[in-house]
Design a binder for these strands. Structure first.
Length: 576
RNA sequence: UCGGAGGUCGUCCAAUGGUAGGACAGGAGCCUUUGGAGCUCUCAAUCGGGGUUCGAGUCCCUGCCUCCGAGCCA
């Protein structure tokens, strides 16, 4: 089988060209540079797959570098979660775990060099004043009165900034570029600010911290990065990235920008994600409805699906929103191959097989053979107990079936998967008219679910239109099932209303507490993935281990990762 | 209004001056012991206007639309 050629994106094209021209000596070295101030989400996965993927493909390297230049926002907890997520995706940075804070001393020396060159100066303007002097998008800025301080004075002042002689915000070190530039980033940007804050790695060693633009290009340079890949909003920063490196005459990587991922029916901005957590719209960063990697993982997605997805969406410079349906398609494709099939009744309806022998003990239970995965015979078979009293899905019975409904109804015959054909002969209701039980007969000739020949025919087999899943009442185990759906009810949250929270899907989580699953699931452990036949893919939630006294009452908890493709649901929707 | 970047099926990505193609979504059908999976078919696009060229999605001009930018955030 030949591999389908996937077209290369513009970044890989640039890299191919660079290798051909022996730029950087044919070397390829990328980096993934998260700020440890939050959890990674699927948008970050795109960047991770791009950077680590390129390194793999071109036999290069990819560093993991924490961009930790703002001590007021960053924490070790985030460093740990980021490492876990990158590892989960299957990437390895070996010993190359770096921190911008590792370079603080070197960065300071470079700053001194720039001051000596007359390319940087200490400015006494306040934050408000700097903003005033900066001008606007349409008006040029004006020079700071401190712009032309002699370099000895700048040197002295900068040294005293480092020593902690000045309060926060009282002074900054600025690059001396051009206050009349059309690019606001070039209007003497701040390089260092005074921040008497404890840093998660350097503690109280520093009270001045470098800004992103200054630290990032130099960190790339120090690490010998060849291609510094970032998102579109940094396009305006590239002249500044280049300026610092050129001024210092140091090794110069190239910055390349691509469009960040947007996904329909969710949000990926840090600000919005924080709101969802803080206002309790979700249970936390790892809520299975969150697009965070920890949430996705708990939901039951596999890292292979995410990597495949990142591969399939491509890389370009155009703003775009990928349809969640593509992610779900790839998820099903992956899970279909690997998930063990199992039967679970989510909303049980009691069924009594009235002609099933009940007075002969040896006949009361049968062990029937069920296939574990029709896509993979290697996964084998298992035994499923059958008895006189069963549960089927409430949704699989209609007293008055619409035309296209071909599941169980009064007088109608269907197949119970791997068991028998049954026919509904009676509907039992309580005083309020609610259906509480079905009486059915079974046909012993259909054992295993095989269709027998019509009476008198040698070729024509009896047909049933539906096959239902079921469990034996006395053998099944009670479980909690959490049905997850899209967090947002519309493709583009906030688009219409202006407030993304108004578009939250009220049914993004439905909890079912008395589901009945087949006994095989007694051995299920946290993280295990199953397909509940005809319903979807489910994984065992970590809450399952919170035995006794917990909200789950010691039951196993299954998260619905995604539904199966559901033709009937589509028909039903159309009928409404 | 100034600077930067973008506009190809509903969505995402291709086509690198030579037949606009793939995937998802939608529709129709086949098959089926999961209304699953699979298979087949189908719908569907070059932002507008000029120009260059034998030939333009691609090159030039022009207009329009979208996104990003005024943190001592990254």
């Amino acid at each position: 089988m030949e591999e389908k050629e996937r077209p290369v994106d513009f970044i890989r094209e640039i890299i191919r060209e660079d290798i051909k021209n022996n730029k950087y000596g044919g070397r390829v070295h990328t980096r993934f540079p998260p700020e440890p101030n939050g959890y990674l989400h699927i948008g970050h996965a795109k960047s991770i797959c791009l950077n680590f993927g390129i390194a793999e493909e071109f036999k290069g390297l990819c560093n993991l570098r924490f961009d930790d230049t703002n001590p007021t926002k960053e924490e070790q907890e985030y460093v740990d979660s980021i490492k876990e997520d990158v590892r989960w995706l299957g990437f390895d940075w070996q010993e190359r775990e770096y921190y911008a804070s590792d370079y603080f001393e070197k960065l300071y020396e470079y700053a001194v060099e720039l001051i000596k060159k007359g390319s940087a100066y200490v400015c006494d303007l306040s934050a408000d004043e700097i903003r005033d002097y900066r001008g606007t998008l349409t008006e040029i800025g004006k020079d700071s009165p401190y712009r032309n301080r002699p370099f000895e004075e700048n040197l002295g002042l900068f040294e005293r900034m480092r020593k902690g002689e000045f309060p926060d915000g009282s002074r900054t070190l600025r690059a001396k570029i051009d206050m009349r530039s059309g690019n606001i980033n070039m209007r003497d940007p701040v390089m260092y600010r005074i921040l008497h804050a404890e840093h998660h790695r350097t503690g109280n060693k520093w009270c001045i911290y470098p800004m992103y633009d200054y630290a990032h290009c130099l960190s790339d340079s120090i690490e010998g990065i060849t291609h510094s890949i970032c998102t579109l909003e940094f396009e305006d920063h590239r002249p500044l990235y280049d300026w610092f490196l050129d001024q210092l005459g140091v090794y110069h990587p190239q910055q390349i920008e691509f469009a960040r991922l947007n996904l329909s029916r969710t949000v990926l901005s840090k600000r919005k994600l924080i709101q969802l957590v803080q206002e309790g719209h979700v249970s936390g960063w790892d809520d299975p409805r969150m697009p965070t990697l920890s949430g996705i993982r708990r939901r039951g997605y596999t890292p292979e699906t995410i990597r495949n997805f990142c591969d399939r969406i491509g890389v370009a410079k155009k703003d775009s929103t990928v349809d969640m349906a593509l992610l779900e398609y790839l998820l099903r494709e992956d899970l279909n191959k690997r998930a063990q099939r199992v039967m679970a009744v989510l909303k049980p309806l009691r069924v009594v097989i009235i002609n099933y022998p009940e007075n002969q003990p040896e006949n009361q239970i049968e062990e029937l053979d069920a296939i574990n995965n029709p896509e993979d015979p290697g996964m084998g078979t298992r035994k499923v107990p059958f008895s006189r009293v069963l549960y089927i899905e409430q949704d699989d019975f209609r007293e008055e079936p619409p035309k296209e409904f071909f599941r169980l109804a009064p007088g109608r015959e269907v197949r119970l998967r791997y068991a028998y054909f049954i026919k509904c002969v009676d509907v039992i209701k309580d005083k309020s008219g609610k259906i509480i039980e079905l009486h059915c007969t079974y046909d012993p000739a259909t054992r295993g679910g095989d269709s027998p020949l019509w009476v008198g025919s040698s070729t024509d087999r009896r047909k049933v239109k539906a096959t239902l899943h079921w469990v034996s009442a006395s053998h099944s185990i009670e479980a909690e099932v959490r049905l997850y759906d899209h967090l947002f009810a519309v493709p583009d949250p906030g688009e219409e209303t202006g407030d993304f929270k108004k578009d939250l899907n009220p049914e993004s989580l439905v909890i079912l507490r008395s589901c009945m699953v087949e006994p095989y699931l007694a051995a299920a452990k946290s993280g295990d993935i199953y397909q509940f036949e005809r319903q979807g893919y489910f994984c065992v939630d970590p809450d399952s281990s919170l035995w006794d006294g917990s909200s789950t009452g010691g039951k196993t908890v299954f998260n619905r990762t995604t539904t199966l493709r559901d033709t009937w649901a589509k028909i039903e929707k159309r009928l409404k």
